[in-house]
Design a protein around this nucleic acid. Structure first.
Lengths: 218, 218
DNA sequence: ATTAAATGAGTAATTACTCACTCACCTTAT
DNA sequence: ATAAGGTGAGTGAGTAATTACTCATTTAAT
């Protein structure tokens, strides 16, 4: 019955809002239980018990079980696609010293870290997105904006500079995301994210991706 | 409210067992409903209605709702990891004319086809594996056997022949599976598997993978 | 006629959520 | 300082709705 290992997003949310101790306990307990057993298989009385709170308290703030879920997932959804990318883009387009390799290594490590720091939210997110069409649509739209407005202009300059293979941007990004997911998902499923060596993995992932995505020089 | 598009595994199961028409309808309806709404969000009365059957009939054969789920997932689990690989391995090790490129193209196309032909089972499978530790363990063990007994010896010969980069086999396979999943999962989530161009996608996937996994010749 | 399959009303259990009430703490009046 | 009054987070027994599953009975098949 350990406290949340890291779960930075939740910690941040709790710090920013001014929820009572008991309400914070409700969120904490819900996060752990939803991740462990799934949303549907977690009862309100379990949440109350785990949070050491009455069942009435569970519903005082967030009204419904779904309300608790939303409170947990909202900050995650706002942060899956790195805000950082925007900053990165701006830094880049003006100056020239950053290159695709830099960019790739940075993003890979950044997202693997994000996944590690928010395992439970990620697991709950996966459980939900697989059966909620609306959520899929929301994420897809966010993805499109990121792709069109931030990644595409950046990658086009990389391609002009012969640092990046001349493939459609969406195809390149698909591969990058696939490889990232390939490191993350198995560990989420087996609950072995704790023993994840981010430095080694992000190095390996970047190496692999660069081999394919860098144009052959001849 | 269309009939199952393809769902070959179910078709095969129905052909092999001798279930009554009504029991077959129960399986069909359950498959569609579980895939659309999720297992938990599908009620027995919905299954009965969709199958045009009384609610008692739903439980006659498979006893419980979980029983129906198992009947649907069992053939899927037995076939996610290609049986074909065994045959492929045997053909290969004796003779020499097959190479890594051959192998890769074959497997990629084969598994994309499998995913396309069994979308609904796949979606249900994903819903379940993400919250069922036992299932994860079962799949992990199957994966280990496949890796150790069939893939490793094959890949070692590819590596000896300088057709395949000298990385750990598990790492290479992780990347191959990641790329496959990257083609399949988005389409499962968006229910757009129907308009999937397997030939083009498997070609693109193989091209990408070969760029990284083939040793540099110099 | 006998067996098997199907029916659907009924049941027991679960569970998300409510609401009348408590009480610790604060503000204001005297 | 003290009493009176107010507030709102917290409580937990109770409720209404849902739903997986049963079984006595009917229907169909050979």
């Amino acid at each position: 019955m350990q406290i949340n290992s890291i779960e930075k997003l939740l910690a941040q949310t709790l710090a920013e809002t001014d929820l009572s101790k008991k309400q914070q306990a409700v969120l904490n307990a819900s996060l752990s239980l939803f991740a462990q057993q799934g949303f549907e298989h977690t009862t309100s009385s379990e949440i109350a018990q785990q949070a050491a709170v009455s069942e009435g308290t569970v519903f005082k703030q967030f009204k419904t079980k779904q309300g608790i879920l939303n409170a947990l997932l909202e900050p995650f959804i706002e942060n899956v696609f790195p805000r950082v990318l925007n900053e990165f883009t701006n830094k880049i387009t003006g100056q020239q010293y950053h290159n695709f390799e830099h960019f790739l290594c940075y993003v890979v490590k950044d997202r693997l870290t994000f996944a590690m720091e928010n395992q439970k939210q990620l697991k709950i997110f996966l459980q939900e997105i697989i059966r909620d069409e609306t959520m899929v649509k929301v994420m897809y739209d966010k993805w499109q904006v990121l792709l069109d407005e931030h990644i595409t202009p950046l990658f086009i300059t990389f391609q002009k500079n012969k640092q990046l293979i001349d493939w459609p941007i969406s195809r390149i990004m698909q591969y990058i995301v696939s490889i990232l997911a390939g490191y993350i998902l198995p560990r989420i499923l087996t609950n072995s994210m704790a023993t994840f060596d981010i430095d080694q993995s992000s190095q390996a992932a970047s190496d692999f991706l660069l081999r394919s995505l860098t144009p052959l020089k001849d």
